[in-house]
Amino acid sequence: MPGNRAAWLLVAVVVLAVACAASLAIGARDMSIATVWQALTQFNPDDGNHAVVHTRIPRTVLGLVAGAALGLAGAAMQGVSRNPLADPGIMGVNAGAALAVVMGIYLFGISGASGYIWFAFVGAAAAAVVVYLIASMGREGATPVKLALAGAALSAGLYSVMNVLLVSSQDTLDRFRFWQVGGIAGSDWSVILAGLPFLLLGASIVLGSGRVLNSLALGDDIARGLGRNVTLARGITSLGIVTLCGAATALAGPIGFVGLVVPHAVRFFTGPDYRWILPFSMVLAPALLLASDVLGRVVLLPSEVPAGIMTAIVGAPVFVWLVRCGKGASL
């Protein structure tokens, strides 16, 4: 299977294209693919169907960039920590970013992605550092199980603090509640453009770390023997991870499990080579996010279920399976 990686990557791109088309065509008002194509190539402002398609374009683009960021961050996080349970949601990064955003709203009255993004970066980075420091305590160091437990414990504590702030301020709760569940509905181009430079920077760093992650997967001693500066390699890759997590969380809210499920799924096609795991994750993670968003639009019509809830429905059973099967040694 790994020998046909390029062909499978092309299939993954086709799957992503289908997800994009579905995102533009399906919703409370369904349209044919022909109508979608006509709206994209021969837009008529007087045609209601064309107008609906154009309102869905920013939502689809946000699903693309946020999903790609979460997929890359999850795959790289698993490689850096050598922990198959690593994910921005499980490792406390999303919780740190969410709490920082709430504090920004509560203390400074910020609003919009351009304001959220800086607080989300600080919160994501601080949570990642705290989780690693807690897990590093003791003789065995930061083992996969200790990292997962530290991340779960920190997430619970941070969300508790966040809830205290929310119940004490109705205005903060009103601004935050729709962002909290995670989703790509209601987005516009200003939101996407605010986070795009950070997403591109983080993606460039992480996509260039494939060889480094392959070395780290062999263990720190072997990586040093191959000439790697392990501390520097982890630091640079972690910078890319935090940049991706912070930007994606600021734009779309704390969407969980995308970065956990997709990297494990793509290993069936790629094997353990991160030079292929990363691009596959970058393509298939937005396909999963967009498919979840489309499903959320139609499952409870005329209401919508946010994409963050739909990805949790898919990802939670996978997480339980990984824990029960003890996959910690597979990386």
Rank of each mutant, 00 (worst) to 15 (best):
M1W: 10
A6F: 11
W8D: 01
V14C: 12
L16H: 11
V18M: 10
L24F: 04
M31S: 06
S32P: 04
V36S: 06
Q38S: 15
A39F: 11
D47C: 02
D47L: 02
G48D: 12
V52N: 07
T60C: 15
G63I: 13
L64H: 02
G67R: 01
A73L: 12
A75G: 08
M77D: 03
R82C: 10
A86R: 10
D87Q: 12
D87M: 13
D87W: 07
G92Q: 08
A100Y: 08
V101L: 08
V101N: 04
V101I: 15
V102R: 01
M103K: 01
L107W: 14
G109T: 12
I110T: 10
S114L: 09
I117D: 10
F121Y: 11
A124W: 01
A124D: 02
A125S: 14
A128H: 01
I134R: 00
S136F: 02
M137S: 12
E140K: 08
P144V: 03
P144I: 05
A153N: 10
G157P: 09
L166A: 10
L166K: 05
D171L: 04
R175V: 09
F176M: 14
F178E: 10
Q180V: 07
Q180I: 03
G183V: 05
I184N: 01
D188H: 13
W189Q: 08
S190W: 00
I192R: 00
L193C: 00
L196K: 03
L200S: 05
L201G: 14
G202M: 04
N214R: 02
N214A: 05
D221T: 14
V230T: 14
T237L: 04
T237W: 02
S238G: 15
V242P: 08
V242C: 07
C245E: 07
A247I: 11
A247F: 11
T249I: 15
A252D: 13
G256N: 03
G259K: 04
P263D: 09
V266I: 09
R267D: 14
D273G: 08
D273Y: 05
L284M: 14
L290S: 04
A291M: 11
S292L: 04
D293F: 07
D293A: 02
G296P: 04
L300S: 14
S303T: 10
M310N: 00
M310H: 02
P317W: 13
G326S: 00
A329Y: 09
L331Y: 15
L331R: 00
